[in-house]
């Protein structure tokens, strides 16, 4: 396509402006010089600390169960696996508030499992960092599964077959051949899952609540600071913008290359 019609160009520019203008607005209005002093006040610092700790725990669990899930999904393509794949990717498009309600229905005090948790162990999740991790897992795990699953489907299976003919056990083949081959996809998926966990708000508010130091993450803090201290809210939003930009740059340069892994897997999924 050498010549793009002018109308297409204009509409494209409008699209770009819709995304870039708000970002520029944030960059221009964020109190960059006071960023450090705002970020180091007690309540903001505890929100940043809580978000960092919970999102890292979430990412570790996501890798621990997400990679095995992707392996099961990509093993072959039959009916129930296709249904399972659709179900586990659902949270990517589900509004997070609805996710929070779904989590309540399962783990809330009147939920199917939550009721038993309280009866047997006296555990209620509202107000605990554990609830924050569960909410983050629900929304971020699918990103890791999709990334690893597509890499596994597109991999070259010949080396694994060769390893098997040479007498390698399935476990050994997985450990020494398959997993190293999809390492970039695991890293990319984990990074995306982590970024999604950091930004999680809707499900957290509904399911975990918002208490300083225990469940009030950076996004929850921004929501409240907007009411009392918009300057601090912009500062925190700017911090999240920096984190997001760092994630993208890191992914592109180290593991993806321009137009790399994530974009190509997305198109193969569309087909």
């Amino acid at each position: 396509m050498n010549h793009v019609p002018k109308t297409v160009r204009i509409l494209g520019l409008i699209g770009a402006a819709l995304i870039i203008l708000p970002l520029l607005g944030l960059v221009s209005r964020a109190p960059w010089t006071q960023l450090w002093s705002i970020a180091s006040t007690g309540s903001v610092r505890s929100a940043i600390f809580l978000t960092a700790v919970t999102s890292i725990i979430t990412t570790c669990i996501a890798v621990g169960v997400g990679v095995p899930l992707a392996i099961v999904l990509s093993e072959r393509s039959d009916g129930w696996r296709r249904i399972l794949r659709a179900l586990v990717t659902l949270p990517i498009v589900l509004p997070p508030v609805a996710g929070g309600i779904a989590l309540l229905a399962a783990f809330g005090r009147r939920g199917v499992l939550g009721r038993l948790l309280e009866q047997w162990f006296g555990i209620t999740l509202l107000g605990t960092p554990a609830a924050v991790v569960i909410a983050q897992l629900f929304v971020s795990l699918p990103f890791l599964v999709v990334a690893v699953d597509s890499a596994l489907q597109n991999r070259d299976r010949k080396i694994e077959e060769a390893a098997a003919t040479l007498g390698s056990s399935p476990g050994r083949t997985l450990r020494l051949v398959t997993l190293p081959g999809i390492r970039p996809a695991i890293v990319a998926g984990a990074t995306l899952a982590w970024a999604r966990a950091v930004g999680e708000l809707g499900a957290t508010l509904t399911f975990a609540g918002s208490f300083p130091g225990r469940t009030r993450t950076v996004p929850s803090s921004i929501l409240l600071l907007l009411e009392t201290d918009p300057e601090a809210a912009r500062a925190l939003a700017a911090v999240l913008l920096i984190v997001a930009a760092a994630v993208l740059i890191g992914l592109r340069q180290r593991w993806m290359g321009v137009g790399g892994y994530w974009s190509s897997s997305a198109t193969s999924r569309d087909r």
Partner: peptide, 21 residues
């Protein structure tokens, strides 16, 4: 030992209605 400081009066009511609080 409050479990949550909600962002609105409705959110407080909702937590009690849900039985979470």
């Amino acid at each position: 030992r409050l479990a949550s400081l909600e962002a609105s009066a409705q959110a407080v009511a909702a937590k009690v209605l849900d039985g979470e609080a």
